[in-house]
């Protein structure tokens, strides 16, 4: 049995089936990439994993435990952290307070939580921003802060939704380094990404989905040359390439 096992998950919104029977297994310690055109169901799959949108059928098993019927906050407690595609900073709290709010999951006293948060901020190279209000951060730092906040909850599996979107090339390199560093601490990562350079560069394995279904799965180089993937991405990628 794999570390995270997703088994035929289906999620509908009215008549639209956003995730249509996705099955995938992630090994402990890996970075797993999830790609697919806009609206293909990647974020919805994340939302199924942490039960923000409970799957309509199928099953998700984390470390041998089914996540069925477990609420979002309990899933975080089990060790699955996440970031949001559209960042959700706690706007009128400082960066430090944001991260402390995550740290309190496993620390009860103010001092312990502060130490944990500072450690996490240091890890994400955000210490210099700690007293700023979250709403005033530039986008790249907002994303870093979300990662830092999530790390403060001491996750074993981290779901990262489009960390590189909206970043400039230098910031993208920084984000790649950060994710590798996270992997080095033994945390498993599931990464949703549009920026090919990013996802190809860091993932051990990649799955490509379209219309809520898997169209290819394999090593980065296999995916990059997969005819179905190229077909799904063609227009978009060409447009980007020009």
């Amino acid at each position: 049995m794999a570390y995270l096992d997703i088994n035929g998950v289906v999620r509908k919104f009215g008549g639209l089936t956003a995730v249509n029977g996705i099955t995938l297994a992630i090994e402990k310690g890996a970075i797993f990439g999830l790609i697919g055109p806009n609206g293909s169901g990647k974020t919805t799959l994340f939302n199924c994993i942490n039960n923000y949108y409970p799957p309509h059928s199928g099953d998700i098993v984390f470390k041998g435990k089914s996540l069925k019927g477990i609420s979002s906050h309990e899933i975080c407690k089990l060790g699955i952290g996440r970031t949001f595609q559209i960042v959700k900073p706690l706007r009128r709290m400082t960066v430090l307070d944001n991260v402390m709010s995550g740290a309190f999951l496993r620390k009860n006293s103010l001092n312990e939580a502060r130490d944990k948060a500072l450690e996490s901020l240091d890890f994400c190279e955000l210490t210099h921003r700690k007293d700023m209000l979250a709403k005033d951060l530039p986008i790249a730092d907002k994303k870093r802060m979300e990662i830092s906040r999530s790390l403060a909850t001491e996750p074993e599996l981290l779901l990262l939704d489009e960390t590189a979107a909206g970043l400039n090339p230098r910031e993208i390199d920084g984000a790649m380094k950060l994710i590798r560093k996270i992997q080095d601490t033994g945390i498993t990562c599931l990464v949703v990404e549009h920026v090919m350079k990013f996802v190809m560069g860091i993932s051990d394995r990649i799955m490509c989905i379209n219309f809520g279904r898997e169209i290819a799965k394999g090593k980065p180089e296999e995916i990059a040359n997969h005819p179905e993937v190229i077909k799904a991405y063609l227009g978009e990628e060409y447009a980007k390439g020009q």
Binding site: S71, E74, R82, P89, R92, M93, D97, L105, S150
Partner: peptide, 19 residues
């Protein structure tokens, strides 16, 4: 901290393990 987190963003708070 948890109260203010809930005020600022309930979904983010849930994702941080806050009931």
């Amino acid at each position: 901290y948890y109260f203010v987190s809930i005020r600022e963003d309930q979904d983010a708070a849930e994702a941080l393990g806050i009931p």
